[in-house]
């Protein structure tokens, strides 16, 4: 059995419960044990705008908490968290003084930073480590006749110098993970468009317009649903879908689900255990189609 430490970040633990529920259901079913960190802390993402040093401290602290588990693999299901934790390793490698200062701060808390932890996202862990073949074998209810679209999330794939989850301009892994469940995926011009989540801090209307335009474009393609794998993207595209519709002057009704929810359905896990009742977008449309 593989064992994996998990850094959930803020958004999953405080509001995007469906992602946490579905990961906690799906991973053990694929033979992966999850170990939570001792504390729930911020990765430093919003703090990057305020004070980069303090953001690096938070990120290094999260990694230090991961070290405490003694595990060498860390799952970070949030795209933003995955980026921030990946970038801190890069910035502390390049800047010895900063590294020393942060190590000292952490020492005061009896924590030690060690970059030798492999940081995984749900997408690359399932695709590269578990593997498509193993997922295929584990399926109990593969899909038929579904047409889905993927939204990978900006920070999972950029910027490549840090070593990211997938190719920056033509990410395929999430599509392949959907395909292995028996569903078709579409390529669409807006695939790499941002959900706008980070702009909710300063420009809510613009943020909603970004999410709205993306969903609108997908509705015109008549897909059965959109698959995401980041709590910030899900918040914009699912929870705020109605507001996003108002922002772009369109009636939006596109089912949006986490990949782990979709995988859970194909693994024959009950809908409620996957938190599907928590999605705000019209997921019933999709569920009806799946059970038909």
């Amino acid at each position: 059995m593989m064992k994996l430490a998990v850094f959930w970040g803020c958004r999953i633990l405080t509001s995007q419960y469906a992602y946490e529920m579905s990961i906690r259901e799906v991973f053990p079913k694929l033979g992966i044990e999850l170990a939570d960190l001792r504390e729930a802390v911020c990765c430093g993402d919003p703090v990057k705008s305020i004070n980069n040093f303090a953001a690096d401290y938070l990120a290094a602290r999260a990694l230090a908490l991961a070290n405490e588990t003694g595990l060498k693999d860390l799952l970070v299901p949030c795209s933003r968290g995955h980026f921030v934790l990946s970038e801190v390793n890069d910035s502390l490698t390049k800047d010895e003084t900063r590294k020393r200062k942060i190590t000292d701060l952490l020492k005061g808390e009896e924590l030690s930073y060690d970059p030798n932890v492999k940081i995984w996202h749900v997408i690359d862990f399932l695709h590269d480590r578990v593997g498509l073949e193993k997922i295929k074998k584990a399926l109990e209810k593969p899909f038929k006749g579904l047409k889905l679209a993927s939204h990978v999330g900006c920070q999972t794939v950029r910027y490549s110098d840090l070593g990211r989850v997938d190719d920056a301009e033509n990410p395929r892994k999430l599509d392949e993970l959907i395909n292995v469940l028996g569903a078709e995926t579409v390529d669409y011009p807006e695939k790499l468009d941002c959900c706008g989540a980070a702009l909710t801090y300063s420009h809510l209307d613009a943020a909603l317009s970004l999410a709205g335009s993306k969903i609108k474009a997908l509705q015109d393609l008549a897909v059965d649903g959109l698959v995401v794998s980041c709590p910030a993207c899900q918040m914009m595209l699912d929870a705020k879908q109605k507001d996003a519709g108002t922002a772009v002057g369109a009636k939006l009704n596109l089912p949006v689900v986490y990949y782990t929810q979709l995988l859970g359905l194909a693994l024959n896990i009950e809908e409620e255990k996957l938190g599907l009742h928590l999605n705000q977008s019209p997921v019933n449309q999709l569920l009806t189609k799946i059970s038909a």
Binding site: C154, R158, S160, H203
Partner: peptide, 12 residues
């Protein structure tokens, strides 16, 4: 400067 969506396309 607060209009950036931090999508990282420019870095890439």
């Amino acid at each position: 400067i607060w209009a950036c969506a931090t999508c990282l396309k420019c870095v890439q």
